[in-house]
Amino acid sequence: EDAPSSDDLEQFAKQFKQRRIKLGFTQADVGLALGTLYGNVFSQTTICRFEALQLSFKNMCKLKPLLNKWLEETDSSS
């Protein structure tokens, strides 16, 4: 699987934040939901840093598919 470019990540982080707010979730909600869904709880700080593009590139790449999946799950259930 190709690693996303930093442009991709930036684009995704923006879209993710907009969708999250529109769906009415806090950063902490998302962190907990990831724990429920995938067994990895993320702190509010981590989600905040992801949205602000302040995580390392490697961590951004790791989180992106999880957050993407969460969006898909959340979209389909709302």
Rank of each mutant, 00 (worst) to 15 (best):
L37Q: 11
E10R: 10
L67A: 03
P65F: 08
F42L: 11
I47R: 03
K58S: 09
E73H: 11
G24V: 00
K64S: 05
E1K: 13
D75T: 07
Q27F: 06
S43C: 04
Q11I: 14
K17Q: 13
S76D: 13
S43A: 05
L63A: 02
S6W: 15
L32M: 11
D29F: 01
K62N: 13
S56W: 00
L9G: 02
L37C: 15
L67H: 11
S43D: 15
Q18Y: 01
L23Y: 01
S77Y: 13
Y38K: 09
F12S: 03
K62P: 00
T46N: 05
N40L: 07
N59C: 08
D29N: 02
S6T: 15
P65Q: 04
L34V: 04
L71G: 01
K22Q: 12
K58T: 12
A28F: 00
Y38G: 10
Q54R: 08
T74D: 07
F25S: 04
S5E: 14
F12A: 05
D8Q: 07
C61Y: 09
A3H: 15
G39Y: 00
K14D: 01
L53A: 13
N68D: 10
T45R: 12
Q27I: 13
S56K: 06
Y38F: 09
R19H: 04
A52Q: 12
A52C: 05
L34E: 03
I47F: 00
R20M: 00
M60N: 12
E1W: 14
G31V: 07
L66N: 00
Q18M: 04
L23C: 03
A3V: 10
L9D: 02
R19E: 06
L34H: 00
P4N: 05
P4A: 12
L34K: 02
F16I: 03
L63N: 10
D8R: 08
A33M: 06
D7K: 15
E10N: 11
L66R: 04
L23P: 06
M60H: 00
N40M: 09
A28Y: 08
G39K: 14
L32P: 00
T26V: 02
S77I: 10
A33W: 08
V30K: 05
S43Y: 05
Q44G: 12
F50C: 00
K58D: 08
Q11L: 10
Q18V: 06
L34Q: 01
I21M: 07
L63C: 02
R20G: 00
L9F: 10
D2T: 15
N68M: 13
A3G: 11
L67K: 01
G24T: 01
S77P: 13
K64P: 02
G35A: 10
Q44L: 04
Q11Y: 07
L37P: 05
A13K: 05
L23E: 04
V30D: 05
A33P: 02
L34G: 01
C61K: 11
Q15G: 08
I21N: 00
F42H: 07
E1C: 15
A52V: 00
P65Y: 09
C61L: 11
K58P: 14
S78Y: 12
A33E: 13
E10V: 07
L9R: 02
D75C: 13
T45L: 10
K14N: 08
K14E: 11
S78H: 15
I21A: 05
P4C: 14
K64E: 03
G24R: 01
E51V: 03
F16N: 02
G39V: 01
Q18N: 07
F16C: 01
S56N: 10
L67V: 03
T45H: 11
R19V: 03
T74G: 05
G31S: 13
N68T: 14
V41K: 14
A28L: 05
